[in-house]
Amino acid sequence: MTLVMTNISAQQEPLSDPAQAGELFDEEIERPNADARYGQSLYYGPVGARGLHQERSFDEDDLRVDIDVEAGRAAVSWLADGSYAVELPPDSPLTVWYSADAAPAVVPAEKARVSIATARRLVQEYVASGKRPSSVEWVTG
């Protein structure tokens, strides 16, 4: 199964292995969006039925990472059941752009519960297994 990362510009990048996924994660989070901010959503999942670089729905994805580098936090969600990763206590909400064509969204502090390093590690774990990462607690709600 081929996995891809989809960024806020709806560009898909194939993920060959966990190391490459980590490098791509680093590149994406350091790239400012149109408003010169660093909050964004990244989606990870299998190539859709229409193939790579074709329009696809985000509900085809498995893992969503809402990350705000300036806040030093991320929200990592497993989309199949709506659960989110928990590593840290709640702090502040995140402001992220999930699409270059949409207004920013606010991610509640209750869901922004992992460090950037942990978000990266969870992406790599997902790419290695194709399954929900097991190295953190997941909470539904």
Score class of each variant (00 low, 15 high):
Lys131Arg: 15
Gly51Ser: 05
Arg73Lys: 13
Asp91Lys: 15
Leu122His: 03
Val47Gln: 07
Phe25Gly: 04
Tyr44Trp: 14
Gly130Phe: 07
Asp91Phe: 11
Leu94Lys: 01
Ser129Val: 02
Asp26Gly: 08
Asp17Arg: 12
Trp138Lys: 12
Arg113Met: 04
Leu63Met: 01
Ile67Tyr: 05
Ile67Gly: 01
Val69Cys: 06
Leu63Pro: 04
Val76Cys: 05
Arg73Leu: 04
Val139Pro: 01
Ser99Tyr: 06
Ala74Met: 10
Asp17Ser: 09
Gly45Ala: 09
Val4Ala: 00
Gln54Leu: 11
Asp59Leu: 06
Ser129Leu: 06
Gln54Gly: 08
Asp101Ser: 14
Pro108Leu: 05
Gln54Asp: 07
Val96Trp: 06
Leu94Asn: 00
Asn33Phe: 02
Ser99Met: 04
Glu23Cys: 09
Ala109Val: 04
Pro46Asn: 13
Glu27Tyr: 13
Ala117Asn: 08
Ser9Asn: 15
Arg64Asn: 13
Tyr44Met: 03
Val107Phe: 00
Trp97Cys: 02
Gly45Leu: 09
Gly22Arg: 03
Gly130Thr: 07
Ile116Val: 15
Ala10His: 15
His53Met: 13
Ile29Ala: 05
Phe58Ala: 09
Val136Arg: 13
Ala112Lys: 10
Ala19Gly: 06
Gln11Ser: 11
Leu15Asp: 04
Gln20Tyr: 10
Gly130Asp: 01
Ala85Phe: 00
Val76Leu: 06
Val4Gln: 07
Pro89Tyr: 03
Ala71Thr: 02
Ile116Asp: 01
Ala34Val: 11
Ser129Pro: 04
Phe58Cys: 10
Ala49Ile: 13
Arg73Asp: 01
Ala117His: 10
Ser129Asp: 07
Val107Ala: 00
Gln11Glu: 12
Tyr43Asn: 11
Ser134Gly: 12
Glu60Arg: 15
Gly45Trp: 11
Leu15Arg: 12
Glu137Ala: 11
Gln40His: 14
Asp61Gly: 04
Ile8Pro: 01
Met1Gly: 08
Leu42Asn: 02
Ala71His: 03
Trp78Phe: 06
Ser57Met: 13
Phe25Gln: 09
Ser41Pro: 00
Asp101Lys: 15
Gln54Arg: 15
Ala103Gln: 15
Pro89Ser: 02
Val127Lys: 05
Pro108Met: 06
Pro32Gln: 08
Ala80Leu: 12
Ser135Lys: 10
Glu27Pro: 11
Arg113Val: 00
Arg73Ile: 00
Trp138Val: 03
Ser129Glu: 09
Val96Phe: 03
Thr6Gln: 02
Glu23His: 14
